[in-house]
Lab assay of single mutants.
Amino acid sequence: RFRLSPAARNILEKHSLDASQGTATGPRGIFTKEDALKLVQLKQTGK
């Protein structure tokens, strides 16, 4: 289970993504908004 920032949680839910597909870069291993946006971008480019 990942620790998600509220913004990251919202983005992941909106795009039906799972945090385990990305890398948490925030302090103390928190999955940040920026991490979520990177994951969305990867999904949109098909990689």
Rank of each mutant, 00 (worst) to 15 (best):
G22M: 07
F2H: 00
A8S: 06
P6F: 07
I11D: 11
L17I: 10
S16F: 06
S5K: 02
T25N: 05
F31N: 13
K33V: 08
L37F: 06
R1D: 04
K33G: 07
H15R: 00
T32M: 00
D18S: 06
D35C: 00
G26Y: 01
A8M: 08
L42N: 08
G46I: 01
T45K: 06
A8P: 10
R9D: 09
A8I: 00
A19P: 15
R3W: 12
R1S: 15
P27C: 08
Q41K: 15
H15L: 01
T32N: 01
R1K: 08
Q41A: 15
R9G: 11
F2Q: 02
F31K: 06
S5W: 00
A19H: 08
L12H: 04
P6M: 10
E13P: 03
H15I: 00
L42R: 12
L39S: 12
K38P: 07
A19E: 11
N10I: 12
E34F: 06
S5Q: 06
D35F: 00
R28A: 12
S20E: 14
T45V: 11
G26S: 02
A8Y: 00
R9N: 12
D18L: 02
L37W: 08
K43P: 04
K33F: 02
G46H: 15
G29T: 01
K43N: 13
L4T: 10
A7P: 01
Q41R: 15
H15W: 10
G22E: 05
A8T: 06
N10T: 14
V40K: 12
G29F: 00
S20K: 12
Q44C: 07
K33D: 09
R28Q: 08
Q44G: 12
G29R: 04
L4F: 09
G26Q: 04
T25M: 05
G29V: 01
L39E: 09
T32I: 00
L4E: 12
L37M: 11
L12A: 08
F31S: 08
G29Y: 00
I11C: 04
N10Y: 10
Q41I: 02
H15M: 12
I11M: 04
K47H: 11
H15Y: 11
L37V: 11
R9A: 12
G26C: 00
S20L: 07
N10R: 14
D35N: 00
A19R: 07
L39Q: 02
G26N: 04
A36S: 04
R3V: 14
R28G: 15
G29D: 12
L12G: 07
R28M: 13
E34K: 13
G46P: 05
Q44R: 11
E34C: 05
K33H: 13
K43A: 13
A36V: 01
R1W: 02
E13S: 07
L17Y: 01
L42F: 03
R1P: 00
G22Q: 04
H15F: 08
L4Q: 07
D35K: 01
R1I: 08
Q41N: 11
P6W: 09
K47T: 01
G26M: 05
L17F: 02
S20P: 09
S16C: 10
L17S: 04
E34V: 04
I30Q: 11
A24D: 02
N10F: 15
S20M: 11
T32R: 01
Q44I: 14
L17W: 03
Q44L: 12
V40I: 06
L12M: 09
R28T: 09
K33N: 05
A7H: 02
K38F: 01
D35Q: 01
K38V: 06
L42Y: 13
Q21R: 05
S16A: 11
I30N: 09
E34P: 01
L17H: 08
I30H: 07
N10Q: 15
L12P: 13
L4K: 12
G26R: 03
D35W: 01
A24H: 05
L17K: 04
I30W: 10
Q44T: 05
K38G: 07
G46N: 12
T25F: 01
G29M: 05
L39F: 01
T45C: 10
F31T: 11
L17M: 12
I11L: 08
F31W: 02
L42I: 08
L42W: 09
Q21F: 04
R3D: 03
V40R: 05
D35M: 01
D18P: 01
R1A: 14
K33S: 08
T25K: 06
F2S: 09
Q44W: 02
L37H: 03
Q41G: 10
K47C: 14
T23S: 11
S5I: 12
F31G: 10
A8G: 12
A19D: 07
T32V: 02
E13M: 02
S16V: 02
R1G: 15
E13Q: 10
T45R: 13
K14Y: 08
E13D: 13
T45G: 15
A7D: 10
I30A: 12
I11W: 01
A8V: 02
V40Q: 09
L42C: 14
L4N: 14
K43Y: 10
K14H: 11
L42Q: 15
S16I: 00
